[in-house]
C-alpha cells in the first residue's frame, strides 16, 4: 500500500548509484516497518503487545517486535502471524515474550526464541523451523521446548 520511500527513487538513479541503493533496499527490506517481525491478526477481549517496554492495546495490525511481550487478559485471546509464516495463538491469561528473532534466509540468519510464563499457546511453526529446526525454541518456567517443524500447544497453569 505504502511503497518504501527508497522504492520510489529507484528509476531516477544512475547505474552505479542504483546498485548501491539496491543493496540498501535489500538490506532495509528486513528493517522496514520499524522492525516489525509479525502482526497481530485476531483479537477478542483484552490483549496487549509491548513496544519499547510500553504495553499497547492489541488490534488487528498491531506490530510485534523483538522483545515484545504479548499478553492476554482473563477473557482475552489473540493471534499473531510472524514474517517467517509462524502462527501463534494465545488463550486467556497468557504471557509470551519474543527473546530472539532473525529471519534473513538469503544470509542464513535464522533464529526464533520465545519464552512463555503462563497460559495456553498454540504454535504452527514456519520457515525458520523448516530451514533450521535447532534455531527454534520456547522457554517455559521449568524447561525448554524444541520445535522440529510442527503444530503444537502448551498449557502452563499454576494451581
Amino acid at each position: 500500500m505504502n511503497p518504501h520511500p527508497l522504492y520510489k527513487l529507484g528509476g531516477s538513479m544512475k547505474s552505479a548509484a542504483r546498485m548501491a541503493l539496491m543493496a540498501t533496499m535489500v538490506f532495509s527490506g528486513a528493517a522496514w516497518g520499524q522492525d516489525a517481525i509479525g502482526y497481530v491478526k485476531t483479537v477478542a477481549g483484552d490483549a496487549t503487545v509491548t513496544d519499547g517496554g510500553k504495553a499497547i492495546k492489541a488490534v488487528a495490525g498491531t506490530p510485534v517486535k523483538l522483545n515484545s511481550v504479548m499478553k492476554t487478559g482473563a477473557k482475552g485471546t489473540m493471534g499473531v502471524t510472524f514474517k517467517d509464516n509462524s502462527v501463534m495463538s494465545f488463550g486467556p491469561d497468557t504471557e509470551v515474550t519474543v527473546d530472539e528473532y532473525l529471519y534473513a534466509p538469503a544470509k542464513g540468519d535464522l533464529k526464533f526464541g520465545a519464552s512463555m510464563s503462563k497460559g495456553a499457546l498454540n504454535v504452527v511453526s514456519g520457515a525458520i523451523a523448516k530451514l533450521k529446526p535447532e534455531a527454534v525454541s520456547l522457554k517455559t518456567p521449568t524447561g525448554t521446548i524444541g520445535v522440529r517443524g510442527t503444530n503444537f500447544a502448551v498449557k502452563i497453569e499454576p494451581q
Partner: peptide
C-alpha cells in the same frame, strides 16, 4: 505450587505430525 503444565503435539495441516522435544535438568 503445583504446576499443571504440558506440551502436546498436534496434526499439521497436511495431516502429518512433526516433533517437539522438552529439555530440563533431568534430560530430553
Amino acid at each position: 505450587p503445583k504446576l499443571v503444565a504440558y506440551a502436546v503435539l498436534l496434526d499439521n495441516a497436511d495431516g502429518s505430525a512433526g516433533a517437539i522435544t522438552f529439555t530440563d535438568a533431568n534430560g530430553t
